[in-house]
Every structure is written in C-alpha cells, then in structure tokens.
Design a protein around this nucleic acid. Structure first.
Lengths: 119, 119
DNA sequence: CTGCATCCGGAACGATACTG
DNA sequence: CAGTATCGTTCCGGATGCAG
C-alpha cells in the first residue's frame, strides 16, 4: 500500500516506464524503419551522437526484457547478433508516428528549440 | 556541428524532450481530463504519491515554457493560480490515449510489472 | 563483433523548512 | 494558497578498458 499505489496498473505509467531512457525511442524508431538490425549497424545509425556501447547494450536489454525487441544471437565467428521489434513493439509504432507529427506541428509554431544560425 | 547534430530538428526527439520528467504525462493527463485546475487541486490529484510541491512547480514551469500549459494567476487574497492546456497541449491528448490503449494491450499480455499478491 | 566491468560526474528527484 | 530555498540522495548516462 501507500507509495505509488495509485499508479499501480496504470497503462499510461507503464508505457512511460518502458520508453524511459534517452535513446529508447530512437532505437525503436530505427528498428521500426529498418526491420532487423545488427548491433554494430544500430550503433552506426546513431552516427556521431554520444550514444555509447554501454548504453546501447543496456537499453536493448531493457527493451528485450520488456518484450519490446527480440534478440537473436548466432553462434558464429565472429559473433552476430540481430535485433528486431516484437509484435508489441510493432504495435507501438503508430504512437511514434503521432509523436513525430505532433513534433512537426509544434516546430512550425515554435521552432525546434535549438539555436538557429542566422545569416 | 558534431554533438547531437543529427537530432537537431527531429520532431520525435523534440517531443521526447518535452514530456521528459517523471510526472509530466500524469500532469497532462489530469489537465486533459479536468480542464482547468488549481495548483492545490493538482497536488491533491496525485493523492498519496510522492510528488512534492517542488517537482510539481518545476514541471509546471517547464510545461509552461514549452507552450504546453497556460498559467493564470489572479491577484487575490489568498492567491489563486489556475493551469490549463494550450492548443498544443490539447492536440497531444490523442497520443496519451494511444499510449493508454497500448498499455492496456500490453498488460493483458504481460501484466503490469508490479507484484501481484496471490491468494 | 558484441558485449561486460568499473569508475565517475551531473542531472533528476525527494524531504523539509520557510515566505508573500 | 502557491510557491521558494536548501540540502541530500539516487540513478542515469559517459569514458575507458577488457573479454569471449
């Protein structure tokens, strides 16, 4: 009882908890876009951002235990590990799209919040 | 250039940034449900959760500067301050509903992740 | 190639007391 | 009533090095 009991079983808070993490949405977005991706492939997708291997591994683990992504390891040399979305993950994609649309709508009104370099 | 430049202007990451915060979604949810709410009213809505005045104030401030809620202060004694969603905030509600629906769907499959007390 | 172990700084969050 | 101020804690995330 007591602590945070009111949030127990709340679907919204559950969803919030699952996508908690700086790179979660981006990972989901990439997997949704490309289907199956290897670890390094995913890492490269983030290009020059500051995502470290540690965080990528950690977030992928969490997403896996949350039934959001599937991890498939092949016993090869060198090792190969592929990630893809589960059914639950795929069903989440429409939300991502709506968030994107809302973001675009918001940017039209207020900009993206980053400094724009005026000429 | 360089750092996080790839995320610049990304609508999805913008959206993620705005709803960042442990209580943001819940605040938005309450305001969406009840329309206009006073500070204390909002505080009480969280009942016995651990939300402190500090965090509520802080999150409301951020939501306000993000054009997500409107703050209206009345020069009365005792003071009265009311919060409500902006147009942008209202347009975000469908996303909240989708997240709820997805959460319900997820709970049917996997439970809510909290301990259930077996009889 | 795909991770794991360790250390560390800073941001987010929380508890409490005080104010106009 | 609606905050502000201060302090303390937790925990997320970054850097680096190592391993199967």
């Amino acid at each position: 009882m007591k602590v945070n009991d009111w949030e127990k079983g709340c679907p919204l808070l559950l969803t919030q908890r699952i996508i908690l993490g700086k790179w979660k949405l981006s990972i989901i977005w990439f997997l949704g876009k490309n289907g199956t991706m290897r670890f390094t492939e995913l890492k490269k997708a983030f290009d020059d951002s500051t995502l470290t291997q540690k965080m990528l591994t950690q977030h992928l683990k969490e997403l896996e235990s949350d039934h959001f992504v599937i991890r498939t390891a092949y016993n090869e040399m060198p090792p190969r590990v592929e990630y893809s979305l589960t059914e639950e993950g795929l069903n989440f994609l429409p939300i991502l799209q709506q968030m994107e649309k809302w973001g675009e709508y918001y940017i039209e009104l207020h900009g993206d919040g980053y400094d724009t370099i005026p000429l």
